[in-house]
Amino acid sequence: MRKYITRRLLMLIPVILGVTFIVFSIMYMTPGDPAQMILGESAPESAVKALREKMGLNDPFIVQYGRFVKNAIMGDFGRSYATKKEVFAEIFARFPATLQLASVGVLVAVLIGVPVGIISATKQYSLFDSVAMLLALLGVSMPNFWQGLMYILLFSVTLGWLPSGGYGSFKHFILPALTLGTSTAAVIARMTRSSMLEVIRQDYIRTARAKGVEEKKVILKHALKNALIPIITVVGLQFGHLLGGAVLTETVYSWPGIGRLLVDAIKQKDTPMVQATVVFIAVTFSIVNLAVDILYAYVDPRIKSQYK
């Protein structure tokens, strides 16, 4: 198992390197002169030229990329063009907000989605099932940012219960978490239901019943554990995406997370910030994926025996 994890971590290196290359190329193609941007529109031509030279912007692409990677390995992604601060410090300052939102959102989603999915599957075609699955379908069809706007319309504008955006108190937290939680819950409920339905008709479930196991235990002990792999997969995927910045939700609620940091940086053509944020997100995302793969082994012994 340890060997497997090590190998997977090593495999991350080329992936992250690839990500840096893609991001670097994309930003390289982006029109606009960084030197000009740092110095401002009114800076004299000669100063801009000097800065370009100093920053190495006249070097060939590959040289610039090499330098970027070298610095990145040292943990130096440069300074933001806009704020002049170290980009990594900025990212770490913003990450907690994103992490909080993602964790609570996913937690809420699992707590709602998994039980609803299980009940729906065990009572297939019942009224509960139909209503729950209709709601879930609406949930996955609703754009997050619109859902956010509608919550604001209801809870802030009309009822005046909660703030429409910002960060700080628990009250600020509720609507963004609700927005992410409900739509993620919908995805999880749908997956849980279909996975449980698949498992419930397996022979070993009948064996469990034939042993005299209580129905509740048949579902929660025998069936659920077998249904878990696809559920863990979507939960991991959703969590990874949320950690990568729920860009739109963060925008709607003026939530100071990674997602908004990235969008702002893109709009300001703040190249170092964009590069660092995307690399950071890719690393987080890959680590979540790895964690999910490791979790598989704990759920399914057949997978564990493949991880050598």
Partner: peptide
């Protein structure tokens, strides 16, 4: 009353 089912390959729970 116990029962042995038709297919042993699928009669046992794979995760227990």
């Amino acid at each position: 009353i116990s029962m042995i089912f038709q297919d042993p390959m699928t009669s046992l729970n794979p995760v227990m």
